[in-house]
């Protein structure tokens, strides 16, 4: 997968929040084999905990994708993106502009506007969006070269609520990297998304809050790889009725 002139061989992006400990986060990153991790920006505390976290993350060697999580307006998101670019020394930004506090649904109108401002300013925007095709088109027009549709609300673990809409996105945007961001709960959800032709999965809660985060990270990585191979191998179509797989020709008459 190639995103913004960067080759990414492992189609899994891992969030860094909610792990039981920094050590377990590191184990999960290693177990998943992922090359990209997401991070955030929050108010610095007097004990400087931010620097320690940043040092630990750099040790993993993973590429950093900062987010604008929690931003509800264009200005908040744009300002946060600029702060992230300086702090993390990357022009990648996972752009979230949240429209609703309960569902954490993206405000797609503000998202498109923020994406336009940021791409004009040299950012490489990864927009967290819905599965709406027209919004996807507007984001591409705004300069995005990747789309990140939700599978289900953030942290819900519901899996893919609208697989048909994701299938339509795949068909509508054949050359555009599509990353399912949010809603994955189990490895089978991740495999399903990849079988639909998604290019990668971004997940956090499903790994971080699992009983064994490193074990779940590995399971997700395997499921994602299985789903990717399954899509590439062109699965059969579903049928309503049974079709015998053993040849009927040459069947003995034994009555």
């Amino acid at each position: 997968m190639r995103i913004y002139d960067t080759d990414i061989s492992v189609p899994m992006f891992l969030g860094t929040a909610q792990y039981p400990s920094p050590a377990i986060l590191q184990q999960a990153i290693r177990a998943s084999g992922c090359e990209v991790v997401t991070v955030s920006l929050r108010r610095e505390t007097s004990d400087g905990t931010g620097a320690g976290f940043w040092d630990m993350l750099r040790e993993t060697g993973a590429r950093i994708l900062p987010n604008t999580a929690g931003c509800h307006s264009v200005q908040e998101a744009v300002t946060t993106a600029h702060m992230a670019r300086e702090l993390f020394a990357t022009d990648w930004i996972k752009l979230e502009v949240i429209g609703h506090a309960d569902t954490l649904q993206p405000d797609v109108f503000a998202l498109v506007e923020a994406a336009r401002i940021l791409t004009a300013d040299g950012f490489k925007v990864f927009p967290y969006t819905t599965d709406d095709l027209i919004v996807g088109e507007k984001l591409l027009e705004a300069g995005c070269q990747v789309l990140m549709p939700w599978g289900a609300p953030i942290g819900s673990g519901q899996g893919l609520r609208t697989p048909d809409a994701l299938r339509a996105m795949r068909a509508h945007f054949p050359g555009v990297p599509l990353i399912v961001d949010a809603g994955i709960g189990r490895p089978s959800d991740a495999a399903q998304a990849m079988e639909l032709g998604m290019d990668a999965i971004l997940l956090n809660t499903a790994v971080a809050k699992a009983g064994d985060p490193a074990g779940m990270a590995r399971a997700m990585a395997l499921a994602i790889e299985a789903g990717r191979m399954g899509f590439a191998a062109d699965p059969i179509d579903r049928r309503d009725m049974a079709v015998p797989s053993t040849p009927v020709l040459g069947l003995a008459e034994l009555l």
């Binding site: 991070v39 955030s40 108010r43 620097a51 976290f53």
Partner: peptide
């Protein structure tokens, strides 16, 4: 004043 923090 913001600092790196865990995020999804």
């Amino acid at each position: 004043v913001l600092a790196p923090m865990q995020g999804g």
